[in-house]
Amino acid sequence: MTKHEIIGCDRCGATFECKANSYNKCQCTTVQLTLNETQYISELYDGCLCAKCLAELKEEYLSHIGSH
């Protein structure tokens, strides 16, 4: 039994344990995002994302701004 909510990633649907109330222990903290990267992702998705999708979207953002 987990003490945190199991949710689905808004992007890929993978389930993971959301630790929003223990943010420093949540899987999403493994991906370091700048303010601009966070804003880019929040414009695309409303809910939580898994670390894999966060990393992929970070790379997508970096390649997008690098192409301009």
Rank of each mutant, 00 (worst) to 15 (best):
N36H: 08
K19W: 03
R11S: 07
I7H: 02
Q27G: 07
N24L: 13
I41S: 05
A14E: 15
Y45E: 06
L57N: 00
I6C: 08
T15E: 09
Y23E: 12
N24D: 14
K25M: 11
E17G: 08
I6V: 15
A20W: 14
C28K: 01
E5N: 11
L35H: 11
C12H: 03
E17I: 07
L35R: 12
L57S: 03
E59N: 11
Q32S: 08
L44T: 02
E60F: 07
Q32D: 09
Q39D: 13
L57C: 04
K52D: 15
Y61W: 12
T29C: 07
E60Q: 14
L33H: 06
L54G: 03
T30M: 10
Q27W: 06
E37C: 01
T34W: 05
I65F: 03
E5T: 13
G13W: 01
K3C: 08
L33S: 03
K3S: 10
N36M: 11
I6D: 04
C50F: 00
E56Y: 04
C53M: 03
T15W: 00
K58L: 05
D46M: 11
G47K: 05
L35S: 14
A51W: 02
E37R: 02
R11Q: 06
E17T: 09
C18Q: 13
E59W: 09
E60T: 10
A51S: 13
G13L: 00
C26P: 02
L49D: 00
L44Y: 06
E5R: 13
C26G: 01
K3A: 09
H64N: 13
A14V: 12
C12G: 05
G66E: 06
T34K: 07
A14L: 11
Y61E: 05
H4F: 12
L62P: 01
C50T: 01
E37L: 00
A51K: 04
T15I: 03
N36V: 08
M1G: 13
R11W: 04
T2H: 14
D46H: 12
A20M: 15
H4W: 09
L62V: 09
L44G: 01
S22K: 10
S67M: 14
K52W: 12
L35Y: 10
Q27R: 08
R11A: 07
D10I: 03
C53D: 03
D46G: 11
I6G: 03
H64I: 08
E37Y: 04
I41A: 02
N36W: 06
